[in-house]
């Protein structure tokens, strides 16, 4: 899923304080799972912002609303009225949701309330960790189901580098060395020979390096 993190409260406040009618707009799928951008978080954030407006003595109306997904047309209908009402919409969806909302309401001020951080998993409640960099050409079959592109700080395809120490990455003792994990897993599986093959330079055209991407599903596209 897509993981996000709300921008600092003061940053959000600075973005919205010049508007009279503000809608805090949640997205109840990915970013609800990390408890940062769902409809419940929209409700909490709106109430904190109303308190702030009161403290600051500003005449503002702040409402909240949420839909299932801000990245698909069909879910927006239930929120049309509130979006029309607002001077500014603070979307706490991922970057895709914010942009889709902005595309649909080109005359509205649409603001981002969230930093979209990564595609990851819930390692344990409250702890989210990156797993995929969306390179567009999956190599997990070569690396024992562990992605060095997303999880090696240098995206090495022939690791581990000389900075791997006690299972940790050279950049921080908080970061696991994924190549250490790959090597140990392959050795335990008795598949060391998989690691002796040299992986050639990657074709990054399928990644963002090839320019903004589109994907077509034949038979569905009109």
């Amino acid at each position: 899923m897509i993981v996000g993190k709300q921008k600092p409260f003061e940053v959000i406040w600075d973005m919205i304080k010049e508007y009279k009618k503000v809608l805090i707009f949640g997205c109840n799928t990915c970013v609800a799972i990390c408890h940062e951008g769902g409809n419940k978080e929209a409700e909490i954030l709106a109430s904190m912002l109303r308190m702030k407006a009161k403290q600051e003595g500003l005449e503002m109306e702040i409402k909240n609303r949420g839909i299932e997904r801000q990245c698909e047309h069909e879910f927006f209908d239930s929120a049309n009225e509130q979006i029309e009402w607002a001077d500014a919409v603070l979307s706490i969806a991922c970057g895709a949701g914010v942009q889709f909302t902005a595309e649909k309401w080109p005359k509205k001020i649409i603001l981002p309330g969230l930093n979209t951080t990564f595609i990851g998993v819930v390692e344990r409640p409250g702890l989210f960790a990156e797993r995929c960099l969306m390179c567009g050409d999956c190599i997990l079959h070569l690396t024992g189901g562990l992605c060095p592109i997303a999880r090696c700080s240098k995206s090495l395809l022939n690791g581990p580098c000389g900075g791997s120490s006690k299972g940790k990455c050279e950049i921080s003792k908080e970061v696991d060395c994924v190549w250490d994990m790959i090597v140990r897993k392959k050795m335990e599986q008795g598949r060391l020979e998989d690691l002796l093959r040299i992986t050639p330079a990657k074709d990054w055209q399928t990644s963002r390096d090839g320019g903004p991407r589109k994907s077509v599903k034949e038979g569905l596209v009109e």
Partner: peptide, 24 residues
């Protein structure tokens, strides 16, 4: 060489490249 990660250095804000690795 692959190179030390930029996080060690004096421009930790830099975008890292690592288009290819030392082996490649």
């Amino acid at each position: 060489l692959s190179g030390d990660h930029q996080r060690f250095g004096n421009h930790p804000q830099a975008k890292n490249v690592f288009d290819i690795d030392s082996m490649q």
